[in-house]
Design a binder for these strands. Structure first.
Lengths: 151, 151
DNA sequence: TCCCTAGTTGATACTTTGTCTCAACAGAAT
DNA sequence: ATTCTGTTGAGACAAAGTATCAACTAGGGA
């Protein structure tokens, strides 16, 4: 349906464009972090990102990686979950919409596409004065493997 | 509309009942953690929970608190967010459904009630073989105060 | 009631994750 | 070139969470 490599490249470009639009400078460090995020499929932990960044650009400091992650989170192009994969993970998602089905037993995570909250965003924006930039939906439960061991 | 105190008591009782039903023992330590979670409105950080637990029951160890939090997460009665309030927070929610509007700038968090994913759960259960126990929707954006400073 | 045993605990050391500080540096506009 | 502001790396620090293991206990059965 989609070409994953192009999606990833788009995600990286969109993320950097968003930073630029918000008035932030595009530095080699920030590019390295975004490329690290885009270079792997799925969610990555902090440690995985640190390793990838230091492979791409060894001189980038640890603090800059975390600063960039925070910046991307605030810009709404990066999502994080402390439940997926049973550790805190990051996922580059410039669309600001990301949905997962997470097994609370084994941490197995499945992405899905249905968007259920588009309509909601307008209503919330009006009611609370929020300027909505995206959303994240996590559905919890037990996967088929883990169900087998349940009572 | 609702009586908050009763809601909180219900939440604590439901949470403990869920643990018991899953075959876990109800110990004074676990009761203390659940009561600590239920004793404050809104989200609490790990440190706040640790303080409250040690007030309620000073002999409860740090490891037991985190073990109980993990147990409650897996049981589907506790939700956590690493974005709300700009730190990792926990929220006792036996219904398994919890929704927030989070300002990515200042961390301000507003809860809302609309449930948009009920229909989705059945479809996901069927498609992926998941036994769904709940979901968490987080909507990101800028609150009215922070909008004032945006370009 | 007492016993048995698997489940649970506290203490503590450890790891991971993330933040802070500050002097040095870099980009863009003058 | 100068200036101003945003950004960086290093490393100390803090917060959050995990692992280990001997000791303890809840709760079902005898």
């Amino acid at each position: 349906m989609h070409d994953c490599r192009n999606e990833k490249e788009d995600a990286a470009e969109l993320a950097l464009a968003k930073l630029r639009n918000l008035g932030h400078r595009i530095t080699v460090q920030r590019v390295a972090v975004v490329e690290a995020l885009a270079s792997a499929p799925g969610h990555q932990s902090a440690e995985e990102i640190l390793v990838r960044v230091s492979e791409l650009h060894p001189s980038v400091g640890r603090a800059s990686v975390f600063r960039t992650l925070q910046l991307l989170l605030r810009a709404g192009v990066l999502l994080s979950s402390s439940r997926a994969e049973n550790r805190t993970t990051y996922f580059l998602c410039p669309s600001g919409r990301h949905h997962h089905l997470i097994c609370t037993q084994c941490g197995r995570t499945v992405a899905f596409d249905e968007c259920v909250a588009e309509d909601l965003e307008g209503a919330l924006a009006k009611r609370y004065g929020f300027c909505v930039s995206g959303h994240q939906l996590e559905v919890f439960g037990h996967c088929s493997d883990c169900n087998a061991f349940d009572s």
